[in-house]
C-alpha cells in the first residue's frame, strides 16, 4: 500500500516541479526577448528613408 502511494506522490511531485519549471522557462524567455535592443525598428526606418530618397531622385530625373 505504501509503495503504491509513494509511486503516486512521486509522480505528482515530478509533474508539479516540471510544470513549474516550464512556466518559469516561459517567463525567462519572454523577458529575454522583450529586453532585446530595438535594432530592427531603427533598421526599418533607415530602409524606408533610403527608399524614399531613391524614389525622389528617380522622379527628378
Amino acid at each position: 500500500m505504501l509503495s503504491v502511494v509513494k509511486l503516486m506522490l512521486i509522480a505528482v511531485a515530478v509533474t508539479a516541479v516540471t510544470g513549474f519549471l516550464i512556466s518559469f522557462l516561459i517567463q525567462i524567455l519572454t523577458k529575454l526577448v522583450s529586453s532585446r535592443p530595438q535594432k530592427s525598428s531603427d533598421e526599418e526606418e533607415l530602409t524606408a528613408l533610403a527608399i524614399a530618397i531613391a524614389l525622389r531622385g528617380a522622379e527628378r530625373k
Partner: peptide, 21 residues
C-alpha cells in the same frame, strides 16, 4: 498566463494520479 494555466492543468490530472493506486 503560464503559472495559472499550468496550475489548472495539474489540478485537472487528479484522475491520472488517483487512478494509479
Amino acid at each position: 498566463r503560464p503559472y495559472q494555466s499550468m496550475f489548472l492543468a495539474i489540478c485537472a490530472e487528479l484522475g491520472t494520479f488517483l487512478t494509479l493506486p
